[in-house]
Write a protein that binds this DNA or RNA. Structure first.
Lengths: 230, 230
DNA sequence: GAGTATACTGACCCTTTGGTCATTTTACTG
DNA sequence: CAGTAAAATGACCAAAGGGTCAGTATACTC
């Protein structure tokens, strides 16, 4: 556990329990949400008694946070690897969408936690904004870099790389959400293809319609809109 | 309240309380989420005692459902009106995005409830899928129709209208979420313009890149992916 | 195998909160 | 203004669940 000495018996047990608890937590939080999940349930799922849980994680919050972080780290790692493997921008976009869709579909409970976490961020009054911002940043940085390069290299039209990345991010999340909720068969591959084609066509160089000025309504929103209440 | 006889005193009071409670509920549920909200808090916010709440709504679930439904109805109404006012497809798309973004930004607490509801749908094990499906359908039907017409009329390239609509839907939601979480100024108008331009460029007729076959990973997902567990 | 350290357990405590209802307040009627 | 119906109240109840810890089981040591 620390440094690199031979792991003691305690280290091994700790690692084993921590892992089992995290897996159990992901399953339970994914299925019931933070409030719906009970420590008792998580403990049973990990084949321990409730008290044991508190030997490895300080609180419900702590185990939730750990489970979420673990998934995010793995997701980021996979996303980054996929993008780095892509030789050019359109492949990078496809890789981003594909890698994430794949990961989420292999880890449905994690995806549920992920969506709930995003929802919480919007709901909660507590301004844990910075932590959340960092999380999104980690997930989008690589793709944003690739898009920025595409723009400066003239590969695609002049767009705000951050906005484009976030758009792809949103599309992917929506796509996965639908795949998970779907009761009838849902052709993920073709949905992924649609999203990538939509985005690629939308970004590709061509006579850009240069963000046609929208009249009326939208204009009124011009001013910076901070977190002001309705 | 029923039929069209002169409203009795009771009717007036009922309407007044119901309305106050729904407003209060939206505020509280929006800020604290379903579980975080307490009936006591909602009651206080509506200037009544807890018991009074139960004179007008059977349960916490009931008031939650009523508040959500009311917002959805209004949102749908506005969205539909905006689309119907649009003379052609690209205006319809812009109208959809703008109308929704506007409504959500004017009713931030409702938006929070809305996002939480979506998240719940994904999280919850209970298959209330059909009700949810209906909700999304109501919100997208009009735009989907417009897009379908655009396709058959050859105005845009051959795409699945449902998929395109859902994509626009997702982009709008993401955009609003960011506007609401944003700590620094956030230029909604330009974000709306970006999304509409991205979509419009992406859908517009042109040498369609015909969903370039994605090799590898995505392919493996081909089979219908139902709600199977990880 | 006695002795000790480590790991685990679940009954228990305490707070929170959805929902109820006997009682009180308010408004209306004749 | 007495009498009655409608409306509102908040103390109360019961269930649920996060977290604790005294006690028990397991494993390791000499």
């Amino acid at each position: 556990m620390h440094g690199h000495r031979r792991p003691t018996r305690t280290d091994v047990i700790t690692e084993y329990r921590r892992d089992a608890l995290l897996q159990a937590a992901t399953r339970v939080f994914g299925k019931y949400g933070f409030d719906g999940a009970t420590m008792e349930h998580i403990a049973r799922e990990a084949d321990v008694a409730k008290g044991t849980t508190y030997l490895y994680y300080r609180s419900k919050q702590a185990i939730y946070h750990a489970a979420l972080s673990r998934g995010l780290a793995e997701l980021d790692q996979r996303t980054h690897a996929a993008i780095d493997r892509a030789p050019n921008l359109d492949d990078a976009i496809a890789a981003f969408v594909t890698a994430r869709a794949e990961y989420f579909l292999e880890h449905r409970d994690f995806f549920r936690m992920y969506v709930a976490a995003i929802s919480r961020q919007i709901t909660s009054v507590k301004p844990r904004a910075s932590e959340f911002q960092a999380m999104v940043d980690r997930q989008t940085r690589r793709l944003e870099g690739a898009i920025a390069r595409g723009v400066s290299r003239g590969e695609i039209r002049q767009v705000d790389p951050a906005a484009a990345t976030l758009a792809i991010f949103d599309l992917t999340r929506g796509l996965v959400a639908r795949a998970i909720v779907a009761t009838k068969a849902f052709d993920v591959a073709s949905e992924v293809a649609f999203v990538t084609s939509l985005v690629w066509t939308g970004l590709k160089k061509g006579k850009a319609p240069a963000a046609r000025a929208r009249r009326g309504a939208a204009e009124r929103e011009r001013a910076g809109v901070g977190p002001r209440e309705q």
